[in-house]
Write a protein that binds this DNA or RNA. Structure first.
Lengths: 342, 342
DNA sequence: CGCCGCTTTCGAAGCGCTTCGACGATGCGC
DNA sequence: GCGCATCGTCGAAGCGCTTCGAAAGCGGCG
């Protein structure tokens, strides 16, 4: 409730001196500055948010656009929203949450009213309506995820292709010969998130390059049983599984393999790749290359702050290299063809 | 980018006339008003957020305090944060997300800088540090959840006691004689959320009143197997289960009962009560009395808006009556003692 | 000694909006 | 026909802050 005028009066200086003492934008004699700071903290002075915004042409607020579809993975979304908020605070920004139908209108509104200094767009679809909108807004915007047309945008995403390739390489290097990919449900893929497709493509290409048999399946429901059955039909000697799917499907995998007498990693090695859940607490923990909300949001916020404060709005795509976390779910296989070498 | 001065000039009226035409706070001649509105929408005029805040002493922003613990149920939290945001928009408020360690400091800051007009406190613990803080803030605050000491607070919560009693009554009325409650993990309860305790107490009391055998168990991990075993030890003729637990435990229940030859509802009836997940897509959908984020947040926002706009800050506790959703997981039992009546 | 340049501080002009008081114009009753 | 109430509009005073330009004070140098 104390205003800058109260502080100025109590410290016996002018309002502008207080302002400069607190912001450090001009040099103030050290003892004056100390006195001002002491008085300010004594009075519990905090600058009035809207007055500061109005005068400084900066709100220190970042809008977070977070759409919610029926098939939304709430836990994953939560993680991204939370991390965005946390990282924003580290840069001294607050976050305004824009959800649902309001995601578009909210972006427009918070940009036009200059409520937000910048926008973070989460859960980007291949063909996302927020892409053309962002181009018209004249408000720094960072996309977390990769739309089809990235012309003029700043985007951050996990390098899903690298993650898929690395998973294949790990398995092939360890002697696996028949590798299955359990992907996302078809409806999810059709709805537009593009990373499942990127994983699909990179997985298949890498398997071809490395010359191993491979197959892909999409779960129907919330468990992996149909997927396992279909994989085994195509790959009778299935010895490696790459997971790029939801938590419920992944967590059901061990038990379902067990019903067929298959044990992880004794009979089948498993690697999760580009997934947003942690596999550490599964009955059998899987090796994983997580889609790490913290890493993505940190990178996104760095770019956004650079755009806001530094005026650097050059379009760019930042692909975050995947990290491999070993939980022991991959073991070396004896060579499939046991003819002695050379 | 257009300012109110641009609109005024284009419409040939003064700034204050534009302001009144748009806000409706004074009467303006209909055709003047129409002209102003036309010009405003043509110019795409939207009032500058901070200028409006500063002049009107109102930010139209509500802070949402959402702590995140290690054992947080992300999906449930997401639902509450999203619903709060959605409902706030219906009242023309935006929401600022305060998470984690910043939950306390953020409340203080957004109140002191008058960034927020009001605060919604989510996931309230029995002994929540945000309670004493709220009492000092002089910023309208609504708690979603019930702390131990509600003195002077405005709180909204599901009537968990009524939900527990109603679940017991349903089962007893349908002839069940041995009812088990699967509660939350002990660590969750000890951490401080109080609704599990309220359910425990009301469940036990109601069972006593109705004169049925009952038992309570807390899961250890993420499935219900230990809980089912312990319930059956105490209640060999277990014929009804009340669930007030997490989604993973609940979703594992049918399969675990099946391993003991028990089928829902043929052998055991099940009612979920005060849970934040939906049971509709379970293999066997359970009857449920959901902890409905939408209902809680709507009620909370109504109270908050009343406090902000109407100045009505009278402390009160609003308990939301539970709704029973029938999925057919409860069937009538033959009377345990089959002596023919009268 | 006077001038210059530096440091430190101050005054005042906004930022774009809301809102209060006032003023001219119009309509009514007596 | 005059006074009075009412309606519609306007001007100006803020809201609390940032920031620019300038003033004041001071030491050093020619």
């Amino acid at each position: 409730m104390a205003t800058i005028a109260d502080v100025a009066q109590a410290a016996g200086v002018s309002i502008s001196t207080v302002s400069y003492a607190l912001s450090g934008k001009r040099s103030i004699k050290p003892d004056t500055r100390a006195r001002v700071l002491a008085v300010a903290s004594e009075l519990g002075y905090l600058p009035h948010a809207s007055a500061r915004m109005l005068a400084a042409h900066r709100s220190h607020i970042i809008a977070v656009s977070e759409p919610v579809h029926p098939d939304t993975d709430d836990a994953a979304h939560m993680a991204f929203a939370m991390q965005t908020t946390r990282v924003a605070r580290e840069h001294n920004y607050d976050t305004l949450l824009l959800v649902h139908d309001d995601a578009l209108e909210g972006m427009r509104r918070s940009a036009a009213t200059q409520l937000a200094d910048g926008i973070v767009v989460l859960d980007v679809d291949e063909d996302d309506a927020r892409v053309p909108l962002a181009r018209t807004l004249d408000c720094p915007t960072v996309f977390v995820g990769l739309p089809a047309d990235t012309e003029g945008l700043v985007c951050v995403d996990l390098n899903f292709e690298a993650a898929a390739r690395q998973a294949v390489d790990r398995l092939v290097d360890a002697g696996h010969r028949q590798i299955g990919l359990i992907s996302h449900r078809l409806e999810t893929i059709e709805r537009g998130s593009n990373f499942p497709r990127r994983v699909l493509r990179a997985f298949a290409e890498r398997c071809e390059e490395r010359g191993v048999r491979h197959a892909v399946t999409h779960p129907n429901g919330h468990t992996a049983d149909g997927s396992v059955r279909r994989l085994l039909e195509q790959l009778p000697e299935l010895d490696g599984i790459v997971l790029n799917t939801t938590a419920d499907v992944a967590s059901s995998l061990s038990a379902i393999l067990a019903t067929r007498g298959l044990e992880v990693p004794r009979d089948v090695s498993v690697i999760a790749t580009g997934v947003s859940f942690t596999t550490a607490r599964f009955a059998v923990p899987f090796d994983t290359m997580p889609l790490d909300a913290r890493a993505s949001c940190t990178a996104a916020m760095d770019l956004l702050v650079k755009a806001i404060d530094g005026g650097d709005r050059t379009p760019r795509i930042v692909l975050i290299p995947p990290t491999y976390i070993d939980h022991g779910s991959v073991i070396a296989r004896a060579a499939a063809d046991p003819t002695p070498g050379v």
